[in-house]
Write a protein that binds this DNA or RNA. Sequence first.
DNA 1: ACCTGAACACCGTTCAAGT
DNA 2: ACCTGAACACCGTTCAAGT
Lengths: 205, 205
Amino acid sequence: MTGTLTPMHTRHRRYHHGDLRAALLSRAEETLREKGPAALSLRELARDLGVSHAAPSRHFKDKQALLDAMALTGFERLTGVLAASQDGAGETFSKRVDAMVRAYVGFARDNAELLDLMYSIKHDPGASDALLEATQHWSDLVVRLIGEGQARGDVREGPMERVGLPVFATLHGYADLAVTGMLPPEADEHGLDDVIAFILRGCAP
Amino acid sequence: MTGTLTPMHTRHRRYHHGDLRAALLSRAEETLREKGPAALSLRELARDLGVSHAAPSRHFKDKQALLDAMALTGFERLTGVLAASQDGAGETFSKRVDAMVRAYVGFARDNAELLDLMYSIKHDPGASDALLEATQHWSDLVVRLIGEGQARGDVREGPMERVGLPVFATLHGYADLAVTGMLPPEADEHGLDDVIAFILRGCAP
DNA sequence: ACCTGAACACCGTTCAAGT
DNA sequence: ACCTGAACACCGTTCAAGT
């Protein structure tokens, strides 16, 4: 008997406020970002959302299933950001590379813990098909960029997978260094420019 | 009353077989390699070694302290391998780069889970001084290699940190892709050669 | 010095039972 | 359909007490 007239919010205790699954995902990402992966606990998540500790199991059979779903949303957002970076990037190959590198490193900086999770989950063998597909989408973007560069004569000849792999490695490596805090302080100034120039030289015919 | 005459092994239960600390480290690395990081448990380690679950706390105040010590031995071994790769690598810059890249990727392949642990620990802010020093040693090796290349005229001018960072990023990124199984199958054939050639082009004056 | 045993507060997972 | 409550087997950590 709260005295309120809003029938949809009689109290904090109903069958939750609509979509427990989405609430779990969003709260989980929040605590991942704020307290790190070790602090992620199904029971604490349930407590935070005011449901019983067993409730999450209706939506995620496992803790691993929750982590998988988090990684999947991460990959989807990442590919969205990368695709968007190409839209207004201009014509030249070097501008398109510049835009993609900055988009990727930006995502890495803004979602460091999530990116770590994404890679660690991609790592283990039981990765879901949806997840493999999402990672495929994003490597396709790099492949397409390289292909365009070849068509313009800005990139050396060769199978795209072979030409693209070192680019991918450099991009991923720099982002990972940024994420894990291993970049020396001087890198903030010129690091990104240097890496982009390095990639362009490595690609040149 | 076992009837044996060897006084040092009256039974499996003494104050352990000499060095519990070393035994914990070596067993921990074994289970890390075989069952992954999630399976690492102080209690199970203690069980495996036939001591009580509280015994490890004499040698490692924390689970984190054990992980730190594991990472430290990993960094020491890695710098050893990298330094050794330069000894018989020959004179030319490209041969020295080739040797170091192969040594690093080889270590990454042979110690995938440990390398993951090493980076994740380097990540978090409470890293010990010994650990920071160990990572410093190994980035010094890359810096020295670049410096020699510059002295010979094989590497473009510029501050070594700036010239070396993209090299470091590429090396790290490729090793990480190899470790996390993200390399496409074709990469086994030419991947390493392509990456080395890419690095050399990126460094060239 | 080095280890044991009991205790405490926390997990993830499962399952009958409730609405 | 969705959630609760109790139960189980596991953790990490601490601390008096043993040798």
